[in-house]
Computed example of a mutant assay.
Amino acid sequence: MTRHLYILLTTSGSIALLGGALLFQYVGGLAPCQMCIWQRWPHAAAIVLGVLALAQIRRARGFAAIAALAMLIGAGIGVFHAGVEWDWWEGITACAGSGNALDGLTGDSLLPSSGGALGVVRCDEAAWVFLGLSMAGWNAVFSLILAGLWIKVASTPRAAG
């Protein structure tokens, strides 16, 4: 497989994962917690880097190295988030339903009947689980796979593809 195809594959992988998260949110009704939002940013960065790598193929190795780092960061956030969901360690207080997460909000903004239902989504409760892994866990797995593919792109000399 050529470097160009690897770049298309990895960029498409991040598009699929980010698109899937948005589908779960807007079609499936699963509101994201703060750490869920954090996990989206590395994929957004990898998409931009993938487009840049395709547009400037001579610099693809550099863009791929940065994209690999973004995916490793995304995997780390996913592992941390999954660990919070499994009670392996404590998460951030801003999305665990404690601390000052509700400061400045009125009762009307939290009640579904008000039409402005904000709600607080806890990071320590998995909203969706498949084969024993939450969305955070699956994101970590796929982010590691994508990181490996980006590393392959970064380590492939231009003449090889």
Rank of each mutant, 00 (worst) to 15 (best):
M1K: 08
T2A: 10
L5M: 12
I7G: 06
S14R: 01
S14G: 12
L22H: 13
L23N: 08
Q25C: 05
Q25P: 00
Y26V: 02
Y26W: 12
V27S: 07
G28V: 00
G29V: 01
A31F: 04
Q34D: 12
Q34E: 12
M35K: 04
C36N: 09
I37T: 15
I37Y: 15
Q39K: 09
Q39W: 04
P42L: 07
H43W: 12
A44G: 15
A45H: 05
A45L: 13
I47F: 09
I47V: 09
I47W: 06
V48S: 11
V48F: 10
L49N: 07
L49I: 04
L49G: 09
V51P: 01
V51L: 15
A53W: 02
L54M: 11
A55W: 14
I57M: 12
R58G: 14
R58I: 05
A60H: 02
A60N: 04
F63E: 10
F63P: 00
I66M: 10
A67T: 01
A68I: 00
A68D: 04
A68S: 12
L69E: 13
A70G: 03
A75K: 03
G78I: 03
V79M: 07
A82C: 04
V84F: 06
W86L: 14
D87K: 08
W88P: 01
W88V: 03
E90G: 07
E90F: 01
T93I: 09
A94L: 14
C95R: 01
C95F: 06
C95N: 10
A96G: 14
G97A: 11
G97P: 00
G99F: 06
N100R: 12
D103E: 13
G104I: 00
T106K: 04
G107C: 00
G107T: 06
G107S: 11
D108S: 05
D108R: 02
D108H: 04
L110I: 03
P112H: 08
P112K: 04
P112L: 06
S113K: 06
S113H: 09
S113N: 08
S113T: 09
S114W: 10
G116A: 15
G116W: 11
L118R: 13
L118K: 11
G119H: 07
G119F: 05
V120A: 14
C123P: 01
A127H: 14
V129R: 13
F130H: 11
F130I: 09
L131E: 14
L131F: 14
G132R: 02
S134Q: 07
G137K: 02
W138T: 10
N139F: 08
V141E: 12
F142S: 10
F142Q: 07
F142C: 07
S143D: 15
S143W: 04
S143Y: 06
S143P: 00
L144D: 11
I145P: 00
I145K: 05
I145V: 14
L146C: 12
L146R: 03
A147K: 02
G148C: 05
L149P: 00
W150K: 03
A154N: 02
T156F: 02
P157N: 05
P157A: 08
R158K: 11
